[in-house]
Design a protein around this nucleic acid. Structure first.
Lengths: 191, 191
DNA sequence: CTTTCACTAGAGCGATCTATCTAGTTTCCC
DNA sequence: GGGAAACTAGATAGATCGCTCTAGTGAAAG
């Protein structure tokens, strides 16, 4: 095997955690998906599953933040970018049979009252999203405090819509959450 | 033991699933919390853990819907009731050290791509909340389609805010989601 | 060529998981 | 009181869990 075993482990665990959560994913399943033996896991992640879990959360969260930035970066108009991002999220849900939504939300809910290290990893990711989003909204001319409020409301709408859409097997909640978020942004820009 | 063992089992599993999810809660833990032996569980729930899980989701979801109805029932003004409900949810989070949020969201994310029976139970609960909420919003004078949209957006905001608030250990997301929901409702009532 | 070290490989361990099984107790109807 | 049904009780089975351990491989350094 080439020297990309660690990345394959992170890719596999990221995908599995996103769909079935942390508790619902066994180490053996991650190893099978990555095509790696036990030895490799405990070489790259001495702390075992929780070590891999924390790093997976940080990495998957970072990548998802990048994705958001690609849709709504400074080079595109803000409201249109956000609209496209929600539409893309709805499309991904449809294409993956409602499996792929937020990569860390399931884990966040599972661990936030029982595993402080992993809860902190999730909190760091959410804070990074909030700060990155706030900066982008400010760039569009929205004052700092209002920008931060709007971003938190948008992220809440997105995360909650993912919960509803996956359970209901319908993209309607994601689409409606996108509409509400876009409307709030347009109102803030018009003010 | 009196004849309330089944209820104690449902109460215990409801509380544990809310905090740690379905996969993160063991049968033994539920039994210990309820003070019941294995035999009682498999007598009342022949299908075992998944049987108990599905019934817990339906029951907890129903009770949470009742709670929402108590805050924002027909006898109070709609926007004020919703505001009070979000404030209450924030208070509960604070009082329980950010443990008690939505009783079924964690389970919904965990099972919606792997256990069809439980996913359906979650979907039934969400649909009941949407229908109940839509009826209440219509009663306040909001047209059906708009009412339904607003309710879905409000539930998404609530669920997502719970994810953020628990991970960040802050009530800010829930409070901001409440403000956004109340503002949308007031705008619809003014139209 | 040899030593070294990062990494692969997987057998096997103890703990824990859900579920079953038999036995005992309580309740209620006749 | 007698008997059936509902329920409690917990030991135990069998599978699976995360993890440790030793051995082996490949490439780079000296």
């Amino acid at each position: 095997m080439a020297g990309n075993t660690k990345e394959r482990l992170l890719d596999s665990s990221g995908e599995l955690f996103r769909r079935q959560g942390y508790m619902g994913t066994g180490v053996k399943q991650i190893l099978a998906e990555a095509g790696a033996p036990f030895g490799s896991l405990y070489h790259h992640f001495p702390g075992g599953k929780s070590d891999l879990g924390a790093e997976t959360v940080r990495r998957s969260g970072f990548l998802y933040g990048l994705l958001l930035g690609e849709f709504a970066g400074p080079e595109v108009e803000l409201a249109g970018g956000i609209r496209a991002f929600f539409a893309g999220a709805a499309g991904t849900l449809r294409e993956t049979d409602y499996a792929d939504a937020c990569p860390i939300a399931t884990v966040a809910l599972e661990v936030s009252s029982s595993d402080e290290e992993m809860r902190q990893a999730c909190a760091d990711v959410f804070n990074a999203w909030i700060e990155g989003g706030t900066a982008r909204f400010e760039l569009a001319g929205i004052p700092h405090a209002r920008a931060r409020t709007l971003v938190i409301q948008m992220l809440a709408a997105l995360e909650g819509a993912f919960v509803l859409s996956r359970a209901l097997r319908s993209t309607e909640p994601v689409e409606l959450a996108g509409e509400a978020s876009v409307a709030s942004i347009e109102a803030a820009l018009a003010a």
